[in-house]
Each structure stands twice: as C-alpha cells, then as structure tokens.
Design a protein around this nucleic acid. Structure first.
Length: 868
RNA sequence: GCCCGGGUGGCGAAACUGGUAAACGCAGCGGGCUUAAAACCCGCAGCCGCGAGGCUUGCCGGUUCGACUCCGGCCCCGGGCACCA
C-alpha cells in the first residue's frame, strides 16, 4: 500500500472502475425496495458553483447510504437548459444560445463526473432537446382541450426604447437594464394555466407531506385561501349612465364584511374600466393614470412605493344605506388581483387608514374591542383585530363571525352578493416573448383564429441558429419560423412566436427520468419510481417551482398519465451559498457586476466591508452586501480549483462538514486544508495499521477497560452516524463523530493482538461510515483492509448492542442550577441512592453552605440539581 | 411593504425531546521532530480575574429548580414576492 494519499491518481481510477461496471445504472425493477433520489436539475450557466456541489453531495451521500441499507437507488441528472442567460450570453458574444448551452452542458457534465457522483447517466434529460419539449407542447394542447390552458391579457414590463418585454430581473429601479429607459406596464394577450382550479387540493394536500414545516407554511400563505364576501357596490345614477357596461355596479371582494358600515370610499386600479371612463374629459386624472402605468410589475416594488390616488368624480352607492361613495383611482390597487377594485374601510384597514389620512377622507370606527380607546389620530394594531360591531345599525353588538354572516345574508337577499372563497394564488401565465424556450404549438389563422398544431406535427422545433439582439423576440422576426399554413383550413397563417415559461420544463422532468426513450410523455416505469423518495434543492424554490411541479403532477394524474397525487414524498431545502456582491451603475442607468476576485475590499475595524475598488484600474465599485451565488451577479465560486488542488473527496467532505445542509452559508475556503488533512490522516492510520501485518480475526472475550471503551465509542458512533444520515440528514455531525472515533483510536497506545483486532474493527467501520461522503478514498482503503472484497458490495455496519452496555455513568451535579461537580453512579442506581450520593459529595456540601436542600431534581442519566 | 428562515468564541459550527454552552474542525499560541522548511506528533486555548470565583448564545423582558431551546417586544442579516432559475 502506498504510504501517501494521492487523490489525483486514485480518484479517476475509481471512477473508471464504476464506469466499467456500470455501478450506478439503476434497473427499473428489482427485488429490493426502490429509492428515487433527485437533486434539482441545474441551469447550465457555464460552470458548477459551490451551491451545486453542496446540493449534489447531499444527494450522493444519501444515495450511497441507502444502497448500503439495501435499496435499489436511482440518482439521475439533467439540465434546465432553456432560459434567459443563454440569450444574454448570445447578445454579449454573438453565439447562438443553443451552442452556448450545449457547450456548458458538456463542461458541467465533466465536472459532475470528476466529482464522482453516483449518477445514472443513461437517463440524462436536457429540456432544450426536442425529444423533451415536444411533450411540453403535447401536454399544453391536452390542457387546452380541457380548458386548463386559456388565453387572456396580462401585464408585462415594457421597455419603450428596445421595444421589448423585460423580465423583472432586467428592471433596475424602474428602468430597463440596457437602455435605462423608464419601464412601462403593458397589457398583452398571454396563455394561462388554471392552477386556481387546483388551489384547494394544493393547500389541503400539504398536510400529508413530509416536508419542512416552513416550506408548507410558505405555500399555504402563497395560495392564501380566504373566506370572504363578494358583492356589488351599485353605480350611482350618473355613473350608471356613463359606464353603460351592462353591469349594475362595482364588484369588490372583502374578508371583512363585518366592517361594511365603515366604508367611506372605494378604490380601483388605474387599468380599471371605471377609471378609463372617468378620465374622459378629465385631463388631470388621465395624466395620473398614465403616471400609474410607469414602472414595472414587481410586487415588491408596488408594495413599497408611495401610495397615491385621485378621485374620479364617479360614485357608487353603499349597498345598505344607499349613501354615495366616491370612487378613487389608487396606484396600490392591482388589476390582476380579484376584481381590480376594493371597498375602503379606513377605520379598520391599515392601508386604507394611511390613504384616508393622506387625502383627508373620513375615517369611521365600526368595530370595538373591549377596553381599547379608538382615535383617528394614529393607527393602532387592534383596529384590525376581530371585535364587536358598533355604529353599524342593525349589526351593532354582533361579534365578527356573526356580523359577517348577517351582512352576507343581507347582501344575498338584496341580490348584491354572496360568500365566496378566494385565493391569493393567481393563474400561471406561461407566455414569454422570448426565443430560447419551448414554442407554444398554436397557429393564428385569419379565418379560424387560434388553431392547435396537430399532434403528428409535434414537436414545433425551435430553430437553433438565431441570435437575439435585445429588441423583441428573434422568432417574431423570423418568417422561416412563423410563416405556415392553417392546419384547419390550409390558408396562410402565422405561428405563435411566444415560448413557454421555463418553469414548465422543470415541472415534470423527474417523471421523464424514470422512462428514458418512452414513446409517450411517460410510461409505466414512472409508476415504479414515483413518487420521488427524496428531493433536494435550494430553499429559493420553496414556492414557485415546487408548487408548479405539484400542480403539473395533479393534471397529469387527472389525465390518467400517472398514478401519484404528489410528486415529492420528502423534501430537503438546502440553504443558500452566499458570496459578496460588487456592482457599478452604467452610464445608461443599467447595472454591471464584478466578480469578488476582481476587486480589492476595504473593511472597518469589525471586518465589515465599507468599500471596494477594481483591481484592474483602481476604480471604485459599490459593495452590494451578500447574496446567493449566481451567474447574473457574477459572484459564483467554481469548485474546479478545489478539485484540481485537493481532489473531489476533499471538496465534498469540506462542503458537507462546513454546516448542516439547511443552513445558509457565506462562502469561504479558508479551512479546506483541514478536510484534506483529515483524509490524509485516515489514509496514514490505515497504512500504518496494515504495515504491522494482519490483525487476529477475533479478540478474546476479555478486553482491557481501554479497549472496551473504544468499542463502546465505536458502536455509539455507528449508531449516531446512521441516525444522522438516515433520519436527521445532518452530515457535519456525522463526520465530526467519525473524527472523534479516530481520535480515540489514536489515543490507545496498545500494540497487543487484541488491540490490533479492535483497531481493524474501528478502521473498517470508519471507512464504511465515511464512504457516502468520500467514496473514492473509501473504495481504495476498503480494498486494502479487506483484500478481495469491494466497498460497493458492503452493507451498512451493524451496531453491537452488547458493546453499548455500561456499568457506571457520570452525572452532572448542580447546586441551584449551577455546575458544581460530577458524580459517578451505577447505571441502575435508584433515584434515592443518587440523591444520597449527590448530597454527600464535597462540592454539594461546599456550595450548599449549610442550607438545607429545598428540593433535589434528578434527571436519570443526566444530572442532579440540588435547590437550596 | 408582505410571507418564510437565521443571529452561539477570532472563524465554520455542536448541544436532536427544557438538563454540563462551545463537541468536531479552521486560524492562533507553546513545545517536539528536522541543518532548515514542509509534513507530522504532543499540549494550551470563550471573556474577566493571580486565585477562589464571576460573566457569556443579537438586544430587552417573562415562564421554570434549570432556557441556545418556550413566551412577548425590538434590532440586524438572508430567501421568496408570480418574466433570474
């Protein structure tokens, strides 16, 4: 055996052996129970970053651990290959997105292979390949037939200079990132998926999922099921005359129908038809509506901007009192939410209160909470709390639930409204005015309207040779793509040039992994592997991706394609890997990012970064704090340096040892050296042990106390590590436990045959326990420890219960809750005996200072606390 | 702004169900080995104090024999907010 650890030669050799034996190709049937283990598929941005290494190292450790536990494990990999960065790269370098993407995939695949992940590459999926996205198109058409896919208008960010739709990411402070032009809201027709139809099931089914509570809560809040009342505020006569829209009034929705007598005004979105009508011949209002259209569509931006409004001069009537209520246009009312109109009760809604104060509108108290004094001077949180109605006529004295019921039934009797369940969740708009995505398989015929592309003509293939230039979609400028005949009447027609949201791609790829080469979207092999047993990915996907994938699965189920209700049985949301962000505003008002290695930072005494300058020319750059590693912010760290310098095992050990998987971590490689040193030490321990010749097969029954303690520690460790891997999914503590075990082994200075036997037992177990994290070195060390056998054939080590039996145990001694000493008692000592022993100790006598014990708390196996 | 997390030594962290705060490791310090360096080995190490001892888990308060852990309020940091993925 080589006395030195050489990962550079060892790792490729082990990987070649895995390849040659197809070690990780999973059969679609097996006598063993199946375990389907997936990491969220990466976007092929160019290089892996540490977040990927972290993610897939966790998957891989589980993969090896469950193999050893006797499962038929499938761990596939694929590429989320459509998306915006490919178009940006194309603009920057003039390379077609397809070429850029396929090259990135090839490079990143080599990186994953050099990390030695136990991936079944025979199932690889790239979402930009026609074999994959044809099924996006096929399924879209099925959803259209069922009415789940439909068309309506939606609001987008419009760059008036580039004449193009911008992603939210491309809007910086309300300006286009390339042009610096003020972005406008624009209404365009788009395709939507009716996820709202599944809202009840999506929220109810969360209860049965073994997911982190925090993620389930986020999804519940996102779906936002509320029980409220929808009703109409009838138009005042003049308003009715002007609107002439065939409607009786302004439809609104509220969860606080109990406050209906507190309405003092109403507000509509700038895009609302009532606002448009009111603006006719009202120049100031028209100008205000125009102003509201400025800026993007991001909720974070809308929610933080200054609330502004203007009266329309149009009135509606209170449904019960018939009193006129003026309608305002408010920039905080969103056309896309509910009806685009709200009743305003400034007495009991914080936002309405602020708005009323700002514009001098009346505020009326209609809810009372015991012992609280109401004042319109300042907002108090209790104003929003449930209470008892006051100043509300016939509803006075009713508590919230009763008041809501009474108001709802009165509205219903008046034919103005009824109770309704509403969701915050909006239907999923999937149209993108972009090139690098799945073409939507629709043809626009002047005679027949929107016509589906027939199934036999799928896929509608995306041309791979176009290069976007930043103004509009290349597809919309490519007659070769859009010119076509109507499938229905044969007339000249125009193909849809919008593509699908890339969340479509990632909503079902995990089904496709299970049945590579299937001639349908999925086949019966999906029934074997699904539901997925473990899904692992970043916490940033807690809502959108996971919700869309759940929805898609349910639609597939309802179409009879798959049998599962939910795709992901267990979920582990990995914490983000953060790094510093440096940027600078460009002349045009856009933003340019710089990689951390390109800048020199200045810090204050506490180590906080106060400023930074570019290394190249010393020019000042802005420090943007810390944030997720991403291609767009240029703060990703490529693991390649680490792999080249120390090998894959060290890189994996380091990222697994650094913290629990769910923790957010700020990237630093300052202690990688220590992980490498540990592996070198393990290597040397095995080498030195074997260099002394073979160890006797079995130790005699009578081990010294020291060797008994070592075996106790060994079997404690096996137990703990198995629990950490299998139940807690916490790897840093498992690794620390093995380190402790090896420290204990080193401390035993005994060269007797019995000691050598125990040492062999410890080393074999340590190699097995570490193997899920560092499989390369473990493979080689195992072959040395047990010539003629393979690590891959080994089971997880068994805990020897007898080694865990102890005669005595050490307890902590406290006086008044403070640590004052220790005492050793028999494992089976009674509570009374322990109490007597504790009171007699020197430490107890000293710190009780002659005072009698008021109480003695004995926690079995832990401590004794004497209270005086 | 709203929803969800997080904050423990110089640093990454541990303490799993309310029971020894700081395991394991990094950096550091002292020593050994070496002509020297690297590597390796041994030891020290939260803060204050000569010591006995006292103090310490973002801040303030509460519950408890006992709180990193539970409750209330606040500060700071991260993730998401529907077109980044």
């Amino acid at each position: 055996m080589d006395p030195h650890y050489h990962p550079k030669s060892l790792e490729p050799a082990v990987q070649r052996e895995w390849d040659d034996t197809k070690a990780f190709v999973a059969p679609d049937a097996s006598g063993k129970p199946k375990y389907y283990n997936v990491g969220m598929l990466p976007y092929p941005s160019g290089k892996l970053h540490m977040g990927h290494v972290r993610n897939y190292s966790i998957n891989d450790a589980l993969c090896h651990f469950l193999r050893m536990k006797g499962y038929n494990v499938l761990q596939p990999m694929g590429w989320d290959a459509f998306g915006l960065p490919a178009e940006n790269a194309a603009m920057a370098h003039g390379v077609p997105p397809a070429k850029w993407t396929w090259e990135n995939i090839a490079y990143m695949k080599r990186q994953l292979q050099s990390l030695g992940f136990a991936i079944d590459w025979t199932r690889e999926v790239a979402t930009c390949s026609p074999d994959y996205y044809r099924w996006n198109q096929w399924f879209f058409l099925r959803m259209r037939e069922k009415g789940i896919a439909y068309k309506k208008t939606g609001t987008v960010n419009w760059d008036p200079v580039d004449q193009t739709v911008l992603a939210n990411e491309q809007v910086i402070d309300g300006k286009g990132w390339r042009t610096g032009a003020t972005v406008e809201k624009r209404e365009i027709p788009m395709w939507y998926l009716r996820i709202s139809q599944y809202a009840d099931e999506l929220v109810d089914a969360l209860d049965g999922l073994a997911w982190p509570e925090q993620v389930k809560q986020m999804q519940r809040n996102w779906i936002g099921r509320s029980y409220g009342v929808e009703f109409t505020l009838p138009y005042a006569p003049e308003t009715a005359a002007r609107m002439a829209d065939g409607k009786a009034g302004l439809k609104v929705y509220t969860t606080r129908a109990d406050t209906i007598m507190g309405i003092t005004f109403a507000a509509v979105a700038a895009e609302h038809p009532l606002a448009a009508e009111a603006a006719k011949g009202h120049a100031k209002l028209a100008a205000f509506i125009e102003e509201c259209k400025r800026g993007g569509v991001m909720e974070a931006e809308l929610a933080t901007m200054e609330k502004k409004g203007m009266p329309t001069g149009l009135f509606v009537l209170h449904p019960f009192t018939q009193e006129p209520i003026e309608v305002w246009v408010g920039n905080y009312v969103l056309m896309g939410y509910g009806e685009g109109a709200v009743m305003a009760v400034p007495g009991h809604d914080e936002r309405d209160f602020a708005f009323a104060k700002q514009y001098g509108l009346p505020i009326a108290q209609v809810i009372d909470v015991d012992g609280q004094a109401y004042s319109t001077d300042a907002w108090q949180p209790w104003y929003e709390a449930p209470g008892v109605n006051v100043h509300s006529g016939k509803y006075d004295g009713l508590a919230q639930a009763a008041a809501i019921d009474a108001v709802a039934s009165d509205l219903e009797a008046a034919g103005l409204g009824a109770k309704r369940v509403q969701f915050r969740l909006r239907d999923w708009g999937i149209s993108r005015q972009r090139y690098w995505g799945t073409p939507i398989p629709i043809v626009h015929c002047p005679k027949c309207g929107d016509v589906a592309v027939p199934d036999e003509e799928l896929p509608v293939v995306l041309p791979e040779d176009l290069v976007p230039d930043g103004s509009g979609s290349p597809l919309a400028k490519s007659p070769a793509f859009y010119e076509c005949k109507c499938p229905s009447c044969g007339a000249d027609a125009k193909r849809e040039t919008d593509t699908m949201d890339t969340f479509v791609d990632s909503s079902w790829y995990f089904f496709r992994y299970t049945c590579p080469g299937a001639t349908a979207m999925v086949d019966e092999r999906a029934d074997y592997w699904m539901p997925m047993d473990q899904y692992i990915g970043g916490i940033e996907h807690a809502i959108l991706h996971l919700l869309y994938a759940r929805f898609w699965t349910k639609v597939m189920r309802d179409m009879g394609l798959v049998k599962v209700d939910e795709p992901f049985r267990n979920l582990l949301t990995q914490g983000m890997v953060l790094n510093h962000i440096f940027s600078r505003r460009t002349d045009k008002g856009g933003i340019a990012y710089f990689a951390p290695e390109e800048v020199e930072v200045k810090s204050d005494a506490e180590g906080r970064i106060t400023g930074a300058a570019l290394r190249a020319d010393g020019s000042v750059v802005d420090y943007g704090g810390i944030g997720t590693m991403s291609k767009s912010k240029r703060n990703g760290v490529d693991p390649q340096d680490l792999i080249d310098r120390y090998g894959a095992d060290t890189a994996r050990l380091y990222v697994m040892f650094a913290s629990p998987p769910t923790d957010t971590i700020l990237w630093s490689d300052s202690s990688v050296e220590g992980s490498f040193r540990f592996l070198r030490r393990v290597w040397k321990l095995v080498h030195d042990h074997l260099a002394a010749g073979p160890a006797p097969k079995r130790a005699g029954a009578d081990l010294s106390g020291e060797l008994k303690d070592l075996r106790f520690k060994l079997h404690k460790t096996i137990d703990k590590v198995g629990d950490d891997y299998g139940r807690r999914l916490q790897f840093n503590t498992a690794i620390a436990a093995v380190m402790e075990l090896l420290n204990a082994l080193t401390d035993v200075k005994d060269a007797s045959p019995a000691a050598r036997t125990v040492a062999q037992e410890v080393l074999e177990a340590a190699v097995l326990l570490l193997s899920p994290v560092v499989p390369h070195i473990a493979t080689v060390l195992w072959a040395e420890l047990r010539p003629g056998t393979r690590l891959l054939d080994q089971s997880w080590p068994e805990v020897d219960r007898e080694a865990l039996v102890q005669e005595t145990i050490e307890l902590v001694l406290q006086v008044n809750g403070k640590l004052r000493g220790h005492l050793v008692v028999a494992t089976d000592a009674t509570r009374e005996a322990i109490e007597q022993l504790a009171l007699a100790t020197d430490a107890a006598v000293k710190f009780m200072e002659g005072r009698p014990a008021k109480k003695v708390v004995v926690v079995p196996g832990r401590l004794v606390n004497i209270v005086v």
